[in-house]
C-alpha cells in the first residue's frame, strides 16, 4: 500500500509532463529543464516497452489500444484474470526478466489501474510471473476472452 502512494506523485508528474508536451504553444526549440528523479524499474520499463502504444498515463487511442488507466486493476479480481494479464503475448514475451516483468505488471495494475485495483489484491511476484509466462495465450480472439474474464470478475470482485 505504501508503494501505491509512493508512485502517485511520479504518475502525476508524468501526466503534467505529457500535458505540457501536448500543448502547441510551447517554445519550439527551448530545452526544458531535465527531470532529476529516476523512474522506478516498473515505471521505466512500462514507458519503454508498453507506454508508447498504451499511452504514458495508460490511455491513448481507445479504439485500437486497450485502455489501462483506471481499468486494468479489474483483472486481478479473479485468478483467471490475474493469469490473463501475464499470459498476453506482448506481456509473456516482453524483453524483461521475471523480476522486472513482475515490477512492471505491478506498476500497471496498481498505479495505472488506480481505483480499479481491488482492495487486498496481492502483488505479482517474479516466481508467479515466471511460471505463467511459460504458457502464453494462443487464442486469437483476445477481445472475446477479455469480455468473458471481466464478466466473471464482476460477480466476485469488491472493486467497481
Amino acid at each position: 500500500m505504501g508503494r501505491r502512494f509512493g508512485y502517485a506523485p511520479l504518475a502525476l508528474a508524468a501526466l503534467v509532463l505529457v500535458a505540457a508536451h501536448g500543448g502547441a504553444g510551447f517554445a519550439s526549440h527551448a530545452e526544458e529543464t531535465l527531470p532529476t528523479r529516476r523512474f522506478t524499474s516498473g515505471q521505466s520499463n512500462y514507458y519503454e516497452f508498453c507506454g508508447g502504444c498504451h499511452g504514458l498515463d495508460g490511455a491513448s487511442a481507445r479504439r485500437e489500444i486497450p485502455v489501462l488507466k483506471d481499468h486494468v486493476g479489474r483483472f486481478l479480481c479473479t485468478p483467471g484474470g490475474r493469469e490473463y494479464l501475464v499470459r498476453l503475448p506482448n506481456v509473456a514475451f516482453a524483453p524483461m526478466d521475471d523480476e522486472t516483468l513482475a515490477q512492471t505488471l505491478n506498476f500497471i495494475a496498481r498505479d495505472l489501474g488506480g481505483a480499479s485495483y481491488p482492495a487486498g489484491a496481492r502483488a505479482y511476484t517474479a516466481a508467479e510471473v515466471g511460471r505463467l509466462r511459460q504458457a502464453p495465450l494462443k487464442a486469437t480472439d483476445l477481445a472475446a476472452l477479455r469480455v468473458h474474464i471481466l464478466e466473471a470478475g464482476e460477480k466476485t470482485c469488491s472493486a467497481r
Binding site: A14, L17, T36, R37, F39, S44, Y47, E48, A61, E64
Partner: peptide, 22 residues
C-alpha cells in the same frame, strides 16, 4: 507511428522527453 490518428499520412517525427530512465 500514426496508429490511432485519423490519418496514417506521415509528416515528421518529434523527440519528446518522457523522463529519466531507471
Amino acid at each position: 507511428w500514426c496508429f490511432g490518428d485519423s490519418s496514417m499520412a506521415y509528416h515528421c517525427s518529434t523527440a519528446a522527453l518522457v523522463g529519466l530512465a531507471e
